[in-house]
Design a binder for these strands. Sequence first.
DNA 1: GTGAAAGCGCTAACAA
DNA 2: TTGTTAGCGCTTTCAC
Lengths: 359, 359
Amino acid sequence: MAPSRKPLPTKPRAAGITDVARLAGVSTATVSRALMTPDRVKPATRDAVMAAVAAIGYTPNQAARSLRARRTAMVITPTISNVVFGEIVRGIDDALSDAGYGLIIGNLDNKRERESYFVDLAFAGQVDGILLMNGWMPKKDDRSLRDTGLPLVALNSAVDGPDIPKVVVQDREAGTEAAAHLVALGHRSLGYISGPLGSWVQNERWQGFCDGVTAAGLDLATVVHWRGDYSFAAGTAVAEEFLRQADPPTGIFAASDEMAIGFIKRIRQAGVAVPEHVSVVGFDGIKFARFCEPTLTTIHQPLQEMGRIGASILLEMINAPGAPQPEWTRMPVPLIPRDSTGPAPKRSRARRPVTVASS
Amino acid sequence: MAPSRKPLPTKPRAAGITDVARLAGVSTATVSRALMTPDRVKPATRDAVMAAVAAIGYTPNQAARSLRARRTAMVITPTISNVVFGEIVRGIDDALSDAGYGLIIGNLDNKRERESYFVDLAFAGQVDGILLMNGWMPKKDDRSLRDTGLPLVALNSAVDGPDIPKVVVQDREAGTEAAAHLVALGHRSLGYISGPLGSWVQNERWQGFCDGVTAAGLDLATVVHWRGDYSFAAGTAVAEEFLRQADPPTGIFAASDEMAIGFIKRIRQAGVAVPEHVSVVGFDGIKFARFCEPTLTTIHQPLQEMGRIGASILLEMINAPGAPQPEWTRMPVPLIPRDSTGPAPKRSRARRPVTVASS
DNA sequence: GTGAAAGCGCTAACAA
DNA sequence: TTGTTAGCGCTTTCAC
């Protein structure tokens, strides 16, 4: 669609910094300072400025501000349709706007091609630092975001490089804990529903789960691994496979709550009881997990906090280039036991209607 | 928190419009035109510009662009934590960015005080038009957003005024349809779980529900009205009241899916079967409604589309001031029957464990 | 169809 | 501590 044009450049001219300055009897520079760095102006002056600001309802123009001051960060996110990333972004935005920074949200919308646009944006010098939630280094042709020399922080998912601080949850430990939880309940045959393969988080959760499995003395080869993508739909799709299986596992760990819920929904429909026949552990701690049936045992991620921490580190890198930053910040993620997990059934095999009928 | 300062204004100077102009052998004005209004540039010139743009990976600076061109709309939203508003905003943003407009999201975060900030923003002349999703005219002291003379569109909820186009769903008809659906299933005692009282949408849904009740020849006085706020928590709170009631209704209409789900979750816990004892209709059509237990009969809102339509109307008002706009755009909202509604139980009374035991 | 030139509203040297 | 001044990168008259 072609851009619509505005017919007249006439505007109901509004209060600007000059108006404030005039009213307060100071220069625009002082107004700016009073607003940006209050401690660098004499209290009396500051008060006068603030009074003038309040009097005419002055609000700084963001566009002008960021054009001149260039204080903007960018976050690359795989999608914004997923609550998980949405929450992290909120945390980031909080921390950033406290520091007077703007935020450009680079939404990949799960389409890898889109990253080239954001690479251009960075090379065009329009951002001061970048948060990576996608798990890899965005490239366009032969240029990589890393070549911009801009401060980079990986969030939620790791990105290789000693100069890239990584802020993540203890995905690995969480995976292990999920396995331990299931094993402690007596489950001996386990299953795992993955996120998109190849991603760092996904690998960690899986590796951690494997650690837990072997630590319990179980044979890794017996663990069933299904492929998912974090969505409800993936959960139900995996459920179909599960239902076709001759001797499906009784303890399942899903890499997202949505998959766990979709999975449970479908297998219950087919007559499999949760947690009587099968136990399921989710991952994320979305609010919905407390209202599904049964309530979902899950691993709770401190999403907003992750966002805030990642943003703070980025700000420090911008403000003090060269100062060392912790390469890893790994936040603990508690497992919250609810009703979707329970003692393993006597027979290792999950009972499905057909099984019951023929036995 | 005091803003952090950036130490050096040094920047790895990046490709700007001047670089493109030089490379393409034209002036910056022509580059700008080639990008904004391609049809006003000779094809050959345009191609040269585009080639140059691609060659150096030029990306226009948004801040500069909007500072100069001032093409920005604002949307006032009660909260962004609610998926419903989030979806509408996505639709708005789509339409707006197609037209080269930026969007300021005015999040009230359910705190009415916050509106004054956005009133200032509007008076400061920083936006060209405003979408109102909150349902009332924001004010600060004695100034109202209306006094800005800016184009205004009410979205999702109506706002009084002949000059304010309203884009809403057929809340009233939907309420009536919900009632009709329950009545058709044989329910004679009905209940309604409201949104925050006093809001337009809320009134419409309730009025429509009342219409349906009386149309069915039922006594309005028998309809139980509970107060909610669209959240899960409200649903469970209402459920508590429901459970304490001597002779609760068997057909319930909740003004949001979250409330419906919270409500169902709680009453099932107490032994009330859905839909055998009680039928519940939700409102919104969130994706979760297909994965709760039982799946939720609900009224599906075309949220993104509403957003897009509202934005288009606003754009027309900005571009052609004075041109007439439809005062009302009322979108149909289909009721989607699922498993949370079924035939009314024989006894009008919902059976709860205690009832069963004592009968 | 194109170029020259004037700012949009603000911040940050630099001076005073 | 404050004011003066010079732009940030772009769009848009206005003239050609």
